[in-house]
Each structure stands twice: as C-alpha cells, then as structure tokens.
Amino acid sequence: MEQPAQRAPWMDDELVAFRDAIRRFIDREFVPNEARWAEQGHIDREMWRKAGEIGLLCASIPEAYGGGGGNFAHEAVITLELADALVSGFGNGVHSGIVAHYLLRYGTEEQKQRWLPRMATGELVAAIAMSEPGAGSNLRGIRTRARRMGEHYVLDGAKTFITNGLLADLVFVVAKTDPDAGAKGISILVLETAQAEGFRRGRLLEKIGQKGQDTAELFFDEVRVPAENLLGGVAGQGMYQLMQQLPQERLIIALGAAASMARAVQLTVEYTQKRDVFGQPLWQMQNTRFKMAECATKATIARSFVDECMVLQLKGELSSEQAAMAKWWTTQANCEVIDECLQLHGGYGYMLEYPIARMYANARVSKIYGGSNEIMKEIVARGFD
C-alpha cells in the first residue's frame, strides 16, 4: 500500500532543502545513539552543540538574535523529521519551539540579546518548569513562590516532569509573585542554573517511554534570582504569556503525532507483507488489509488537519480551540493506530527490539503533556459559551 508523496501546502523549495539537511543530520548523529541515550536517560550534552552548529536549534528565531531566521514552518519540519526517525530523546521542541519563543515574544531586548544567541549555538540548554507534584494541568494551583527582596526574587518550591531538566542551563520557572492575586499573580522567572545556590536537580525520572528524553525533578530552596531575570520585566504577566504560547506548543505535539501515525502504518505494511501466517503473507488476510486501511485513513485525516492548522499558525490565525482540537484528536488517534499496528505484529510487537513497541510506549504520554486531552476538550467546549 504505497502512498503517493504529497507536499504539504505550507512547504516550499527552501523548506524541502532544509528538511533534507536535517534528515541527514538526524540519521547520522541521532539514530545510531537513540538506544544508548535510552539506557542513560538523556542525550549527550555535546549533541546540543552539534545541533547548534548545523542550524537545528532556534531555527525560527531571527538572525539578529543568533537564530536561523526562519519561521514556525522550520520548527515543524524538525519535529516531523524527528518523529519519522523515531527519535524521542531530543528535547528541541521545548528548547526551540517553546522556550525560545517565550523569550522572543515577551523578553526585554537585553534578555533576548543575553540568552537567545547562546541557545541557538547549544551553549545554553533551556527548559520551562510549569508542572508541580500537586498541580499538573491546573497552572493556577502552583505552589512555587517568588518573593521580591530588593534587587532579587527569592524562589521556593518544586517542579516535576521537566523536559531538559537534568541538562538545563536556563530554566523558565513559573511561580507566584503575588499569591493573593490569582492568575494575575503568576510570573515567569528565568533561572541561570550555573552556581545558583539553593537550586537542586532531583532524580532523573524513569518513564514508560521516551526513555532517552531528559526528564527531571527540580527543587528551589531560597534561590536568589536577579529581578532583571523576570521575563519581560513586569510581574503578573505569566498566565497571559503561557496562554498565548500554548497553542503553538500543542501544534508541535500534534505534528509529532501525525508523523508518528504515518510511520507506524509504513512499518506495519512492510512487516505484514514479509510475515507468513498459515502459508501466506499476513498482508493477504482481509482483516490485515481492512485494519491498515483504517489506520492509513486516520493518518491521512490527521495530517490534513494538522497541515490546515499549520497554514493558520503561519498566518497568526490559529485559535486556542483549533490547537486544542489538533492536540487531543491526533494524540488519541496516534495511540489507536499504533495499538492496531502492534497487534498485527503479534508477539513481536511486544518486544522492544521492534520499533512499533517503542512507539507504543512513547506515544502514551502525548495524551497527557501539553495539557491533558480532557483539558483540551474543555477548551474546545468553551468556544461555544
């Protein structure tokens, strides 16, 4: 069942050339190391610098700040290529697709000049610390506090499930600067982790999937953060900043899910065409063909919708509701497609040496992070209020 190649409506010749260069780099540097990174629980620190050297980091940040001078389409290409190559350990979506854009959109000029060029080279690895042990999708429930004391904020609290947490040099910490002001009392402080007294990294978290992705706990005990590191220089803007940027984060997740679905279909068609059952290829059985037809249809619908969302995002017109739809539907469909594909692999599908087994484990969290799918449905429903 060979599907004809079709160029996305948001792609152009320059993006195709960029994609080909990124694909070569991923195949050369990431794919051979993915298994080893899964064993150690994080990618090698030096790989961030290598990625910076070839222009993979901060591809959509202006050249004036050391970035690649592209737009979100460049981030999308990178996301798609990583998903297609089954590379789950590289946290660039957070570093370049999310944190860099908080800084670009809301940072002061001094903050942008100070941090973005070093993020683009890989000198600095960035993380954003939102989730807490008692507050996941409910950001208003965070307990981390930042008290203003002279020219510093004093940061206390704990964060968990932080992507890039182990290696991060720069952590955007979501904290309450005015606990009595509700959503208007939340701010984002930029912590430079080197020699930050009172800052401690907890354990590297052991996960079901995405084992090569650096995910850690972070602790803040009377950590002094210069007031000039308050994102944008104005307290109380954190919730607004988060809400404005979350649609792009959710589209990144949807892009990965759509690519994962297509890859699962491809792998399973290839497997079933070679696997003999009762004297004939598994592919020749009607159930196999029907199941793969269903999976291919879901993958095609997902990619079509995500491409439509990409067009809107590039025009600055993607709504929160549309991003939420894309995030919840594609991640749900991805888990369903991979489950069907694993079933057709039989017992081999349960063995981690087969890519479909790793995809099964890697996909599950996508229905949780970036806002759980239940929260996504609530966002969609609010559009009718």
Rank of each mutant, 00 (worst) to 15 (best):
Q273R: 15
Q322Y: 09
L116K: 14
G238H: 01
N92H: 14
Q343V: 07
G233V: 00
M11Q: 05
G134Q: 12
Y360L: 04
N138M: 08
T177Y: 11
K176V: 06
Q266C: 01
F172P: 06
M11G: 01
S187F: 08
Y271K: 09
K315R: 15
D385Y: 08
L116Q: 08
M292Y: 06
I22F: 07
I22T: 14
P62N: 04
R201L: 03
A21W: 10
N287F: 14
W328V: 09
P62R: 13
P133N: 02
I208T: 15
R201C: 10
D339I: 00
G134V: 02
R118K: 14
R263H: 08
C341L: 06
I98V: 12
T163F: 00
M243Y: 14
A17N: 04
G89W: 10
R224C: 04
E308H: 11
E270T: 10
K327Y: 08
D339V: 01
F90E: 10
G91W: 06
V365T: 03
A363K: 01
D13M: 01
V277W: 13
D156P: 07
K367M: 11
A85F: 04
A196Q: 09
N33K: 14
L251H: 02
L139I: 07
W37A: 00
N92K: 13
S187H: 07
A100D: 12
Y153M: 02
V365F: 07
S260R: 12
A363Q: 05
E249K: 03
G347E: 13
F90H: 10
P32H: 04
V337T: 07
V77H: 02
G41L: 05
T163N: 03
H152G: 05
A135V: 00
G134Y: 04
L167N: 00
L246W: 10
L86S: 03
N334D: 09
K377H: 10
A120N: 05
F219H: 15
Q245T: 14
G346T: 06
A326H: 05
D385A: 11
G347K: 09
E317L: 11
L231M: 11
Q6R: 15
N362C: 00
G55H: 10
I208Y: 13
L103N: 03
R289I: 03
W329F: 09
M310L: 12
I54S: 04
R118H: 15
D44W: 13
K207D: 06
A293W: 07
M11R: 05
V311E: 13
R140G: 12
L191E: 04
Q213E: 12
N71P: 04
L56M: 15
M325L: 06
G349K: 08
F25D: 07
R303I: 11
